[in-house]
Design a protein around this nucleic acid. Structure first.
Lengths: 338, 338
DNA sequence: TTGTAAGCGTTATCAA
DNA sequence: TTGATAACGCTTACAA
């Protein structure tokens, strides 16, 4: 490995002169500087990141932690983060899994964006106490070294519920996320608030898991006890799509016999038939804002907590309810079980 | 920041003793060792990654480089890689973009898996020459420090073409990937080989880009000059889905008037109507094999190049061609242009 | 403008 | 079994 020592030797100067030249300092003559640069290039010199990080006590790398790599939500989110990071002279790395948590305390990265419930909040607070900078996307946490950039879950869930109620629904199934999910809890809170205001609206909670399988299981339940009209608010699209898949095998037609609404507007939701009604937000914006906030707190600049706004996306999975006199017959014994 | 120096001072021993104790060496008494460990815990000691990497000349981190974060292919691939990495004591980080290339030469990572055409092959060869270990997933490259784990593109494309030919097709549109894509070039080579064997099969090349938009544009062309029977082999699913989307707006019915086949079996292809016929392979296997190979070449173990096998997935987007006497009329002026 | 030297936090060699 | 010490490659006062 060629180091600045090798360059110094070859150029007949000291290592500090080499360091200055390499870093574009004006403390050194253009002449010596260009000579050093030429030699560096000739020797294929590449600085050693570990040495630089050790000395400067910063790596200029930011990390984002995800529960897993397979979420559809992540593409634009990461892309938004990367754009901001690169523009500000930072590199971005994506990490997942317990093992990689050490990157933050061991100072491999200068800061972390967390969208990963496998980080305990106490763990994050501990890191923050030791001076590490963190932006959380999946919980509320108050600490001078932690900033939050959260979805407006409440607005989204309210939008979804009110949409269904407005169309005439009085019985709404709500399929939740897994226990401990912040997003799920926030969305549920909004569901409760809306239904408290609306005396004639009944809602039934079905515990889900934010995965397709949870939606499928919810569909089973709903098919069993179906009475029309019925509507389902799945607290994310993944479950909504699982639910639609299962429903498609039954006699219930989505958007006619049963209305479905999701949350997240993942790409797939455009492709299910009929198009899934869902809550949309800019994943790219979410990412870029998170990165911006992280870089700011690293720089010691003051930041406020940020919120990502949401909108409702229309589609065929929800339909105005007209009073029906002909009850739709369901013969349970004929329901196809996949 | 608390370092081993602080622990040494508090424990009344030297830093080397602390280092030994912390690393579980048996050169030190259980008594002193446990005392040191207790103090380390009490002081919230966390080792400094940069210092360790600098000294040991290895980071125990592997990097995987992707062109962008938004591919559907990546979820399982990364997950497979991570599993292997973690089991072998390595951490995995995901990187994207020109800026992050430096991670390898600057020795932030011990090796790299490349699925990113923004790396020039000369660049990779240069790194390999300097002793860096690399596994490539998107090109052929021969160097003692480079290993390849490639899809069996040839088998996949042959499977697809033969499937269409077997069903009676004699005119096949082939929508390619972008220029310079290794996968596209390999798949095209197989297309040519198959058609050379089959004298009565005509094929028409349409240059694509591996994106949905490329498929849409190809659809326009095909709709314009449509004569039945027609079949399209899109060299990846993304384009096949773009093509299907555009076709759905026309009068041509997929799987009846026109057959479509893709490559990759991304999740979306399950959801398009009718289900896309495509070439499948285990993305998880691909990732785990890549990680295994990388770790082996880092350890100096000999490795052979590996190949990922493929299969054909059936679906409704392809249908047996029966001789038709009634020509299907297309009125170009009525084609809906989105 | 350039050089000397200290130090970042480890590991590891060699003595004691 | 433990301790002094050099070294990893770099940055940066401070001195010349």
């Amino acid at each position: 490995m060629v180091s600045i020592k090798d360059i110094a030797k070859k150029a007949g100067v000291s290592i500090s002169t080499v360091s200055y030249a390499l870093n574009g300092s004006n403390k050194v003559t253009d002449e010596t500087s260009s000579k050093i640069l030429a030699i560096a290039k000739e020797l294929n010199y590449v600085p050693n990141a570990a040495a630089r990080t050790l000395k400067k006590r910063e790596s200029k790398i930011l990390g984002v932690f995800l529960t897993d790599f397979s979420g559809d939500v992540y593409g634009d989110l990461l892309s938004g983060m990367k754009t901001v990071c690169n523009a500000q002279g930072y590199d971005l790395i994506v990490c997942s899994g317990k093992q990689s948590h050490r990157m933050l305390p061991e100072r491999m990265i200068d800061g972390a964006v967390i969208l990963d419930h496998t980080f305990a909040s106490e763990e994050l607070l501990q890191y923050a106490d030791r001076g590490h900078k963190i932006v959380v996307l999946d919980r509320e946490l108050h600490h001078p070294n932690i900033n939050q950039v959260l979805l407006d879950n409440k607005a989204g869930a309210t939008l979804a519920m009110e949409h269904l109620i407005e169309l005439g629904h009085t019985k709404i199934y709500v399929v939740t996320g897994p226990e401990g999910s912040f997003d799920s809890a926030q969305r549920m809170k909004a569901v409760r608030q809306v239904t408290e205001r609306e005396a004639n609206v009944e809602w039934i909670e079905i515990v889900g898991d934010f995965e397709k399988s949870g939606g499928e299981q919810a569909a089973e339940l709903i098919i069993q006890e179906y009475t029309r009209p019925a509507a389902v608010f799945c607290l994310n699209d993944e479950m909504a799509i699982g639910l639609c898949n299962r429903l498609a095998e039954s006699e219930l037609q989505i958007g006619r016999d049963i209305d479905v609404i999701g949350f997240d507007n993942i790409e797939l939701s455009k492709y299910v038939q009929p198009r899934l009604v869902t809550i949309d937000y800019s994943k790219r914006k979410w990412g870029s804002l998170a990165a911006e906030q992280l870089i700011k707190i690293i720089a010691g600049e003051p930041v406020d907590h940020e919120r990502i706004y949401v909108t409702l996306v229309e589609g065929g999975s929800v339909c105005r309810q007209v009073p029906q006199d002909i009850p739709f017959p369901i013969r349970h014994e004929r329901v196809v079980s996949s």
